[in-house]
């Protein structure tokens, strides 16, 4: 009876311990990544290919999401504002929402599924096939070779992809407002510029950069610590996507609290 009653507490304590251990290992990997930045000759030649994989290859899916997000935002804004609120506030809502929230977050979530899963699966496979062990055996810094280029590529390309997604989303909302809502370009642009602040762009880029860093480091972490065979790779991939998605949402709230 006592065992049954104490089991939830035991599970909770064990989970907290595992979480703390995971965070600690992630912190250690991050610190090692920072230290590995000195191996420029190792990671630099791998950076551009990783930027292509992380950023350029992710542009279509990011723009696709942003396109329909802008359309839906414009339509829902006009639906909400029908009546007392002037329609030029559609521009306000589309611009502000795309820049401050949906552009960075949706792009981050999309890229966490694509990039984070890719990194975790790739590194996990290398781990279970002992390729990483071989690098260590050859005294080749695996973190500088495998982690640093991916993390740096994500840090660089996430804001770039996010900026393009924001632009496409706003453009989609603009075209929707003109074609479907009988708004004029002047009305939409008036709303778009009404409450615009340069900090909105800075805020979006800061969020996107942080999302890129977390998605890449979490993907590398779960890939580096993959155990078992193919099942372990799948498990690590899933966990990488889930955790990075959760972290993106937590970071989104964190930046809203600290920067706005």
């Amino acid at each position: 009876m006592t065992r049954i009653l104490s089991q939830p507490f035991i599970s909770m304590g064990r989970g907290a311990t595992l979480l703390a251990a995971g965070i600690g290992r992630w912190g250690m990997l991050t610190a090692e990544t920072v230290r590995a930045l000195r191996h420029v000759d190792v990671w630099l030649r791998l950076l551009v290919p990783q930027m292509a994989r992380v950023g350029v290859d992710s542009v279509p899916i990011a723009l696709f999401i942003a396109l329909f997000t802008g359309i839906v935002l414009s339509l829902q804004a006009s639906y909400t504002f029908t009546g007392a609120i002037p329609l030029y506030f559609v521009g306000v809502l589309v611009g502000k929402t795309m820049m401050l929230e949906l552009g960075p977050v949706l792009t981050g979530l999309a890229l966490s599924g694509r990039v984070g899963a890719n990194i975790a699966a790739e590194l996990g496979t290398m781990r279970v096939t002992e390729q990483i062990d071989a690098l260590e055996t050859l005294a080749y810094p695996p973190v500088a070779y495998l982690v640093v280029p991916r993390v740096l590529a994500s840090i660089i390309m996430f804001p770039i992809v996010t900026a393009l997604a924001i632009a496409v989303g706003i453009a989609a909302g603009w075209i929707t407002a003109i074609q479907l809502l009988d708004m004029s370009t002047a009305e939409f642009v008036n709303g778009l510029t009404l409450f615009f602040l340069p900090f909105d762009v800075t805020y979006a880029l800061i969020k996107a950069t942080s999302f890129g860093f977390m998605v890449a480091t979490i993907g590398c972490f779960f890939g580096f610590h993959t155990r078992g065979g193919a099942e372990g790779v799948g498990h690590s991939t899933t966990r990488a996507v889930v955790v990075s998605s959760m972290v993106i949402l937590v970071l989104d709230a964190f930046w809203a609290v600290t920067l706005l």
Binding site: V48, P49, M51, A52, G55, V56, V59, G95, I156, M157, P159, I160, V161, A163, L164, A167, L192, T193, F196, P198, V201, L205
Partner: peptide, 24 residues
């Protein structure tokens, strides 16, 4: 591929810079 990366980065920088200036 490298050129494509450069184009994407350049496009993004242009979008951010001119977009911000235009909205301002």
């Amino acid at each position: 591929k490298e050129a494509l990366v450069g184009v994407v980065i350049l496009a993004s920088v242009i979008v951010v810079t001119f977009g911000t200036l235009w909205l301002q």
